[in-house]
């Protein structure tokens, strides 16, 4: 009897200590500098958003924030570095749709499972792509475009590489409207826009920031945006979905924050709180909108559900279009 009591007491004590130390862990967090891994080069969209957020998180978390660029392998090198990092919340990933939800269906050699190896923290921003046409393409609405593309098979669209959100934008459009279009891969948006403006390439799907100069100058035609609804940054550009036969069309790029799987839930929550608070800051929201992004704070549960829906859609498009990299 006494023995059992002693055992129970000991067990209780252990549990209590564990609980205290656990609570202490989250309360002390962060007690050292935190690294945000950006899996792309400095100056890109993800990098810029990371640096804006880092600036804000410094105050919200009271810790030094280091933005580290680990580019390569369509974002997978940086993502894999986070997967392998200690799950203590001090290393997080600001990832884009590619390495967090698309590449797993495209790349046979992917070295991690985004669902099992990454713990979602929150969505950060949605970045709708703008479908821009060369001035040489005689179409000014989605309807005219689809009709023209049907008569002229083999129209070309620029992308930033295989399996990129731009590539899926094209594949989804071609699939839904029954068009025959050819992808022209590039490394980044700049030269795509030059080639679309000159008419060498017929169209491209790029972020609004990249295309804004070309659109306002009339060098390219902004036909539609790839989000479900018109975007804050330019209400004059219709959504592709406004054209009735494509009313289900929605495919945006997005950036989300992830921790390595196994990071304690209370630390994930704390990070979520700090990042959501940053995203609700008006000044930061303006900066995001300046670069064509829509701030998109979510709870951990919302973000997890969002990821599941997005993955299902990406998987379907990739499968239908037969996009695959050995």
């Amino acid at each position: 009897m006494f023995n059992t009591f002693k055992k129970a007491l000991a067990a209780g004590l252990v549990a209590a200590i564990a609980l205290i130390s656990h609570v202490a862990l989250a309360e002390d967090f962060p007690s050292k500098p935190l690294r945000i891994i950006v899996p792309f080069n400095p100056g890109g969209g993800v990098d810029t958003v990371a640096r804006i957020i880092a600036d804000n998180l410094r105050e919200n978390l009271g810790a030094e924030i280091i933005v580290e660029n680990k580019p390569g392998g369509s974002g997978m090198i940086g993502a894999n570095a986070v997967v392998k990092a200690a799950p203590d919340g001090y290393t997080v990933l600001l990832g884009s749709a590619g390495e967090a939800a698309i590449n797993e269906f495209v790349y046979k050699k992917i070295q991690y499972s985004p669902t099992e190896d990454l713990a979602p923290i929150t969505l950060v921003a949605r970045i709708p792509n703008v479908m821009v046409l060369s001035p040489k393409v005689p179409a000014n609405t989605m309807e005219e475009f689809v009709a023209y593309a049907k008569e002229n098979p083999g129209m070309t669209y620029g992308t930033s590489g295989i399996g990129n959100s731009q590539h899926l934008n094209g594949a989804l459009l071609a699939g839904m409207s029954g068009l025959d279009m050819v992808q022209i891969p590039y490394k980044g948006a700049s030269k795509q826009l030059v080639d679309v403006a000159s008419g060498d390439v017929d169209m491209t799907f790029v972020s609004y920031t990249a295309a804004r100069g070309f659109i306002t100058d009339g060098k390219v035609k902004a036909l539609a945006i790839t989000a479900a609804e018109r975007a804050q940054f330019d209400k004059n550009i219709p959504a592709i979905a406004e054209y009735a036969p494509l009313s289900n069309y929605q495919l945006e790029n997005w950036f989300g924050m992830f921790a390595p799987a196994g990071t304690p839930a209370d630390i994930v929550d704390k990070l979520n709180g700090a990042i959501v608070a940053a995203l609700n800051n008006d000044e930061l929201a303006t900066k995001l909108q300046n670069m064509g992004g829509q701030p998109a704070p979510m709870t951990v549960a919302e973000f997890t559900a969002f990821l599941a829906t997005e993955r299902a859609q990406f998987a379907e498009i990739v499968k239908k279009a037969g996009i695959s990299v050995e």
Partner: peptide, 26 residues
Amino acid sequence: LGIPGDAIMALLLAGLVVQGIQPGPM
């Protein structure tokens, strides 16, 4: 044109865009 030639130009451009300045002919 708002098109950066290299990584450094992309960084400078990002700095401007965040500040709300739109590079371009205008």
